[in-house]
């Protein structure tokens, strides 16, 4: 596989219009390093994602990291796979208020059928709000 630039990888990712989860989260790709298995994405922390304390529900921070980790993994395999998550651990370090949030996904180790991932979620002020680690499975995309 020839080396893919971040712009090429983003073009590849956005070839398919966002649906469901990535549309709800208003996903915007910022950087994808396919060779390194890394993705940095922006999401919109909408008012409707807030709990009674007016901060983004932890599960939605997990959803953003899950998306970013899946993109890091699929980019590392030339976008030929989807990556259903098998298990995910999330630690909530600080509350994140509504607004633009940044999630990063990083492949820690990729095997033929399994991938180990890490995720980070930064609040509007750049503060690290949550971290995650996940195990996922590579599955050939059905739409090619």
């Amino acid at each position: 596989m020839e080396r893919m630039s971040s712009a090429q990888a983003i073009a590849r990712l956005t070839k398919r219009p966002p649906v469901g989860a990535s549309e709800l989260l208003a996903q915007e790709p910022l950087q994808i390093d396919a060779a390194r298995g890394f993705a940095r994405m922006a999401y919109q922390g909408k008012a409707e994602f807030c709990n009674q304390l007016g901060v983004i529900h932890g599960g939605f921070l997990a959803a953003m990291m899950d998306e970013a980790m899946a993109i890091a993994a699929t980019a590392a395999r030339g976008f030929d796979y989807v990556v259903p998550t098998l298990g995910m651990k999330t630690s909530y370090l600080a509350p994140a208020g509504p607004g633009r949030l940044i999630a990063e996904g990083q492949v820690v180790r990729a095997e033929e059928r399994l991938v180990f991932l890490e995720g980070r979620l930064f609040g509007g002020d750049g503060e690290l709000a949550a971290v995650a680690s996940a195990t996922a499975r590579f599955r050939k995309v059905p739409w090619k």
Partner: peptide, 22 residues
């Protein structure tokens, strides 16, 4: 519901986390 789904048309794992956490 579909607004919580991934391109495979099943629930994105993060939203499963959200439900369980709630």
């Amino acid at each position: 519901e579909p607004h919580l789904f991934n391109p495979m048309n099943v629930m994105q794992g993060g939203f499963t986390v959200a439900m369980l956490e709630q």
